[in-house]
Design a binder for these strands. Structure first.
Length: 400
DNA sequence: AAATCTGGCAACCGCGAACTC
DNA sequence: GGAGTTCGCGGTTGCCAGATT
């Protein structure tokens, strides 16, 4: 079915909205309510496309919009939800009252995706480095403007400058936001500033290489495992570490306190002093421990699989019921974004003879395992505690 | 002081789903 | 049930501020 243009575009104004147009639109919606976007411009006397009016309202004029910085808490939510939901900005925005999908999308594209690019997954053409270098090498010096983060930093140091030529508010009505104001995303916490500084430093200077170590603690526990005894907790099972199996579900179900965000890693002194080697230790139940060096070796023993989806998150699964030897040890990824997802199977799996057929087999095994609840069918036990793990795994697996 | 360059963000575009008649 | 319309979403574009050369 074809789609008619939302409106006649001839003679319509485009580009930035003026304060006057904002006032007209705002007053009209106040009087008549939102909706009927197609007829709204005509009724309101605006020479704008209905879609444009809607967008302006949704992204800017709505009175319930939160103005100002994206807080670190919001940023963490964005990161986690993006890892879980992907680029479903409207869904992500629905978890952040007062934030619009466009705002979040822009924030992700301009702030967060760049961070993740640092840790991007190697392309097929690129050989997997024997050591995962987490520290950026200094790029060629570039001409032109520095990053806005650096600018903000400078602003903080030098004092706030005025922004002289932004549009003025059309009236004094407090309900009417200024038209296209400068939105200063001053970072609100010292931790964030610290991360930004690291980011800037990482770009502008040649970093020495150090060692990054962290451990995967089961049930929220952190098990110091690296040679320098420094470890930071990665995401842990929301169910808290039951003997015989730990599976991470979708990110939203993960205990906030136990999840490691990208900022946590960036903020970690471990990264600052890093040499690029990530030593990952998994302590599953106390009776055995697995250690892998990220990017170089992945040992898969005793049915333990590890998938480090990205430096943002790592998930592990412990064989507890019949999927031993699975070459898809990481049953699902909490990160859907390809550029972010560091899929062990692409690299390590080959080393271990991983192939497509095996992957399909494992998918079937996964299904079989999930199906084989005690009652033999879904719902027979209404997913008690024992099956919650499987349910989570199934949901994540299907999402992936 | 001018030119160059880049990041950030507002706005646009096109598609598909949902809705209406 | 089908055609037309509206809405909402995600990707992309282009303007602008301002640091650097």
């Amino acid at each position: 079915m074809g789609r008619a243009p939302c409106c006649e575009k001839v003679g319509l104004k485009r580009g930035r909205w003026t304060a006057e147009e904002d006032a007209i639109l705002l007053n009209y919606i106040k009087a008549n309510g939102e909706g009927h976007w197609r007829s709204l411009p005509k009724n309101a006397g605006l020479l704008r496309c209905g879609k444009s009016c809607r967008l302006r309202w949704v992204n800017y004029l709505r009175t319930d919009l939160k103005r100002g910085n994206i807080s670190t808490e919001e940023e963490d939510v964005i990161i986690k939800l993006h890892a879980s939901l992907g680029n479903r900005w409207s869904l992500i925005a629905s978890h952040l009252p007062g934030r619009t999908d466009n705002e979040i999308k822009n924030y992700w594209n301009s702030h967060l995706s760049r961070k993740f690019d640092t840790f991007r997954r190697p392309t097929n053409d690129e050989p997997l480095p024997s050591v995962m270098n987490l520290v950026k090498v200094s790029p060629p010096k570039r001409k032109g403007r520095t990053s806005r983060w650096a600018m903000k930093k400078n602003k903080n140091l030098l004092g706030q400058k005025k922004n002289p030529n932004k549009e003025i508010n059309v009236n004094s009505d407090a309900a009417l936001p200024p038209a296209t104001p400068p939105v200063e995303r001053e970072r609100s916490s010292t931790a964030k500033t610290s991360a930004e500084e690291k980011e800037t430093e990482g770009r502008d200077s040649t970093a020495d290489v150090g060692i990054v170590s962290f451990s995967l603690g089961k049930g929220g526990g952190t098990s110091p495992s690296s040679s320098n005894d420094q470890s930071i907790p990665l995401m842990s099972s929301p169910s808290g570490g039951r003997e015989g199996g730990t599976t991470l579900g979708p990110l939203e179900s993960i205990d906030e306190e136990l999840s490691l965000t990208f900022n946590d890693i960036l903020d970690s002194p471990l990264l600052l002093e890093s040499s690029g080697i990530m030593n990952t230790s998994i302590e599953t139940s106390g009776d055995h421990e697995e250690s892998v060096a990220v990017g170089s070796r992945l040992e898969r023993k005793n049915g333990v699989g590890l998938e480090l989806s990205s430096p943002l998150s790592a998930s592990m699964c412990v064989d507890g019921g019949g999927i031993a030897g699975s070459s898809t040890g990481g049953w699902f990824s909490c990160v859907e974004e390809d550029s972010v997802n560091w899929d062990w199977e692409d690299h390590v799996g080959q080393e271990h003879g991983h192939d497509q057929a095996a992957e399909e087999r494992n998918g079937q095994e996964m299904l079989a395992w999930l199906w084989e609840s005690d009652g033999g069918e879904w719902g027979s036990q209404s997913f008690g505690e024992v099956d919650q793990e499987k349910e989570n795994a199934m949901v994540a697996w299907l999402l992936s």
